[in-house]
Design a protein around this nucleic acid. Structure first.
Ligand SMILES: [Mn+2]
Ligand SMILES: [Mn+2]
Ligand SMILES: [Zn+2]
Ligand SMILES: [Zn+2]
Lengths: 125, 125
DNA sequence: GCTTGACTTGGACAAAGTCCATTGTAGGAT
DNA sequence: ATCCTACAATGGACTTTGTCCAAGTCAAGC
């Protein structure tokens, strides 16, 4: 556990946190000015391997790093400002895929992204 | 309607077609050797604007272009080889998101990606 | 035949991420 | 206390995917 790793871990603390690698880097630099982009990428990659953090891709932009790896969840994204919230839909979407729609695949995981407009953006007409 | 556009449209004909822009370009070049990457991107962009084709992003790699724009559907992806199938789950995932999980958002759309292993890859142990 | 405007082209550029050779460092060995 | 060594960090080159733009091409209409 080096100073660099500690800082990256600290930056990711909180709820509904979905930062890009560059955002993590920018915040890490505030605490440890000489930390490099490569180290942030390396550390994030390790945390993902360890299951401490998950990667989220809600758009074609940069991947986002999510410390909420404990509870499986999905995402609700504002198409205007990009705000992301963790959501827990009821029901199991896996069960909604009939056998004759599985084409012989072994299906192991489902990823659901809800898209819409956040209250903030809806107010700013 | 130029020769270039006709060729791009032809390349995209079929079911379960989800080609990247560069794959479209490679196949278009076979029919029209001097077609440029920029034209393929331009044409695909127009077809998306016109609603004739949809963009699909199942991974962090290149966007894929999908001529199945008539019927809304979701995707089943093989994590090994990347094969993509169109699927039509039963039920409405939008209804599975309770009000108290919407954070005041106006939710307009849901995107579901099923992940697993295709029969081909499962056979190739 | 000329003008015009839309379409095409090739290349420069940008964002996100990976790779790698080099440098730095923390801790154990002497 | 000093030296060694393994591992981590660094900076920059490179790759992939995609956008942008200035210049070239071509067909239609005058
Ligand atoms: Mn999340
Ligand atoms: Mn499809
Ligand atoms: Zn918003
Ligand atoms: Zn497969």
């Amino acid at each position: 556990m080096t100073a660099q790793r500690r800082v990256v871990a600290e930056v990711l603390e909180g709820d509904h946190v979905h930062l890009t690698a560059d955002e993590v880097h920018a915040r890490a630099v505030e605490r440890l000015p000489e930390i490099s982009r490569a180290t942030v990428y390396n550390t994030l990659g390790e945390m993902v391997s360890l299951g401490e953090v998950i990667e989220v891709s809600t758009d074609r932009r940069a991947k986002r790093y999510d410390p909420n790896a404990h509870r499986p969840h999905h995402h609700l994204v504002c198409g205007r400002c990009g705000a992301i919230r963790d959501v827990h839909p009821s029901g199991n979407p896996l069960a909604d895929l009939p056998d004759d729609e599985r084409f012989g695949f072994t299906v192991s995981d489902v990823e659901v992204t809800y898209r819409g407009t956040c209250p903030n953006c809806a107010a700013t007409v």
